[in-house]
Design a protein around this nucleic acid. Structure first.
Length: 231
DNA sequence: CCAGACGTTGTT
DNA sequence: GTCTGG
DNA sequence: CCAGACGTTGTT
DNA sequence: GTCTGG
């Protein structure tokens, strides 16, 4: 699955690489240990209508809480358990299907962590694109209105799929990683269900690299560049 | 009908 | 053992 | 995902 | 809001 990741490429560069026209998040610190419940940048089509023009809705970078809170939730804590959505079933699940139809997003990540079970306990690994460029993880996002009023809460989940060859020794699940064409299709509101389904597959072998890292990443309170260095 | 879940992973 | 919070 | 709490009453 | 289980 995917329960921890890193994003340290400057957000302006991420925006450029992801074709973002509106940047709604600035001055973000580089992150080496992003944990569920934290605010993370996502790339999405603007949920708001474009003024007059009839132009394409903007592709924007916004912030969302990691852990999807369905609109019908009475309490946002349900999001603590909705950090991933299975690609095989998300389209039909009550908690995800509205988002699957209407609110797909990309979650930029320089890499993600997986924990491998060994005789000595769990060994964390860092996995990234071999090019070193930020990856686009397939995501869903949602808006939740607090019953007591106030600002709606934006939240998101990362889609998972079966592990590919590289990942299999480490873990049996991995996040869905979208290539350039996949990113376009995933964000296309008119995408056909069968096209979307085809996107939610393990990454091809050969595009990723992985190495063991320090167990200091285990604590979400640790946050420094050495967490993604080989150890 | 109403009540209660709505999710994933991992472990047994 | 299981839930909550980060 | 992992870490850390897991409880109540009463007092500050 | 909508589905599942009783």
């Amino acid at each position: 699955m995917c329960g921890r990741y890193a994003l340290y490429t400057p957000i302006e560069a991420v925006a450029r690489l992801f074709g973002v026209s509106e940047l709604h998040a600035h001055d973000l610190d580089p992150r080496y240990n992003i944990a569920p419940t934290q605010e993370v940048p996502i790339v999405r089509r603007s949920p708001y209508p474009v003024a007059e023009s009839g132009a394409e809705p903007a592709r924007e970078l916004a912030l969302a809480r990691w852990g999807l809170v369905p609109f019908w939730a009475k309490d946002p804590s349900i999001g603590n358990r909705m950090i991933n959505a299975r690609g095989e079933t998300a389209a039909g699940k009550p908690a995800f299907r509205n988002a699957f139809r209407k609110r797909r997003c990309l979650v930029p990540a320089d890499g993600f962590f997986e924990w491998q079970k060994t005789a000595d306990g769990k060994q964390p690994w860092y996995i990234r694109d071999a090019s070193g460029e930020p990856m686009a993880l397939a995501g869903l996002w949602e808006l939740w209105d607090p019953p007591e009023g106030g600002e709606p809460l934006a939240s998101c989940a990362i889609i998972t799929t079966a592990a590919n060859e590289l990942m299999r020794p480490l873990h049996d699940r991995m996040p869905v990683i979208l290539d350039q064409a996949g990113r376009e299709a995933w964000l296309d509101p008119a995408a056909k269900p069968e096209r979307l389904e085809a996107l939610l597959a393990p990454a091809p072998d050969g595009i990723l690299e992985a190495w063991p890292v320090s167990r200091r990443v285990n604590s979400p309170f640790n946050e420094d560049p050495s967490l993604v260095e080989p150890a």
